Computed example of a mutant assay.
Amino acid sequence: MRYGINPQQMKATARPSGPGGLPFRVVNGAPSYINVLDALNGWQLVREASATLGRPAAASFKHVSPAGAALAGELDEVTAGLHGVAGAELSGIASAYLRARDADPKSSYGDFVALSHPVDAQLAELLAGMVCDGVIAPGYEPGTVERLSRKKKGAFLVLEADPAFVAPATEVRDVFGVRLEQDRDQVEISPEVLKVATGGALPPEAVRDLLLGLSVLRHTQSNSVCYVRDGLTLGIGAGQQSRVDCTRLAGAKTDTWWLRRHPAVRALEFAPGVRAQDRINWQIRFVEGDLTADESARFADALTGPAPELTARDRSEWLARLTDVSFASDGFLPFRDNIDHAHRHGVTRVAEPGGSIRSGDVEAACRELGITLVWTGLRLFHH
């Protein structure tokens, strides 16, 4: 590999841990240590989600956790307009990736792309215009590798996953002179794990969203939670020591995703030459509403006219319209505060392992707030 986690760790290699060889081959570029971690985690996520839900899946990875993940589906006007594909007929895998990247487009800047299906010409052309570090997919249609290989002055990383690869039953890791070994988590995530503890029966779209959420969390650094709606993640909270901090972080990202669809944000008119990523970043800062004096001046320069008004009342009324959001947690919810915070972001269904000493409090909170609670019996920690 080019280097390890940091450039000063120059000696870094990737080799098979079992007799089956590597689960991918390098088609273009040279991977770094983190590239490989992102690729392997991302490929497992999209392969699992696609197999479980029967649709193409995509994920946008940064620092070994997904910034967003989604199934193939229709793009709303905001996502389509952002990528210049309004009115276009998209392939399943192209729509899946654009939906995944739009979940948290600020974090997805410079991401690693993971795809459950081969890259087609349409997606290759879209990727060519985006800032990303590499892609892993089970195949590439003719001409797509050549198109992608021109990115980053030829250094864009293209990996081809082996769909037939079967990982060893045991995982091994060396840390500070200690070798850790464990069984690989091979439990199947299926509708059978969703057991309603309180609330009504789950409609098909809720089953889909909760299963997608569980697949995402299985490959996200713990503690982790995610908000899911319409087959795409709206907010992912990863790697926090406190679960409620994950819930609040992912909830804030969910609010940002929804507020980017507010008419005032969509009415922002940017000056010619303002790049797409800069437009995204300004939209997000406008939504957050706490621009510094320097930012306010630069924001004004980026627009062709005054920014529309977006008051606290406007925000509150718009956020109140978000509903039918599903929420999944990789570990049990230790207190009802997670439910209270999740409810603020349109959550109507929650999936968690259950079994904490305060599960009764969590269940009571769900009944009080009209949330359907699902116990999975599965802890999906990932470190």
Rank of each mutant, 00 (worst) to 15 (best):
V350L: 10
A276F: 10
D230T: 09
T348W: 07
S107K: 10
L159G: 04
R25T: 03
R313I: 15
A58Q: 03
C246I: 03
R266F: 13
R47H: 11
F176S: 14
N28M: 14
F327V: 02
R379G: 13
G29T: 05
D324F: 13
R229D: 00
D278G: 13
T247M: 00
F327S: 02
N223R: 15
G235K: 03
N35M: 07
R2Q: 09
V350C: 05
I284C: 10
V178D: 09
L214D: 03
V350A: 05
D104T: 12
R336N: 08
I189W: 01
C366R: 01
P306E: 11
A59N: 07
G251K: 02
V119Q: 00
S359M: 07
D111R: 08
R25H: 04
S356W: 11
A293L: 14
R150A: 14
C366D: 02
T292E: 06
H117F: 15
T198R: 06
G4E: 09
F270S: 07
S107N: 12
R208E: 10
A167F: 09
L373I: 02
T79D: 06
H382N: 13
L45D: 01
A67C: 12
F112I: 08
E192T: 02
A252M: 11
I280E: 05
V193E: 06
D76N: 08
L82N: 11
S215R: 02
T52M: 12
K151E: 03
L322K: 01
T254Y: 09
G84H: 04
S222M: 07
S242R: 14
Q240K: 13
E192C: 04
A167W: 04
F327Y: 13
C366Y: 02
T144E: 02
T323N: 13
L310C: 05
R150Y: 10
V193I: 15
V362M: 00
H382G: 06
A51P: 07
A206V: 12
A100K: 01
T292I: 08
D38V: 06
L322R: 01
V172F: 09
G377M: 09
D104Q: 15
D294C: 05
P334S: 14
G87Y: 08
V64P: 01
A364V: 01
G29M: 05
R336V: 14
F332Q: 06
A96F: 05
D294I: 09
I189L: 14
D245E: 05
P353R: 05
D174R: 15
W282F: 07
K253W: 09
L378T: 01
I339P: 02
R229T: 05
R379I: 14
P203N: 06
D162F: 04
E192D: 06
K152M: 15
G370S: 03
H383G: 15
P19M: 11
K195H: 15
R248V: 15
R15T: 09
A12Y: 07
G231K: 03
R208N: 05
V145A: 04
A201G: 04
V85Q: 00
L234A: 11
D183Y: 11
P56A: 08
L82F: 15
T144C: 04
M130A: 11
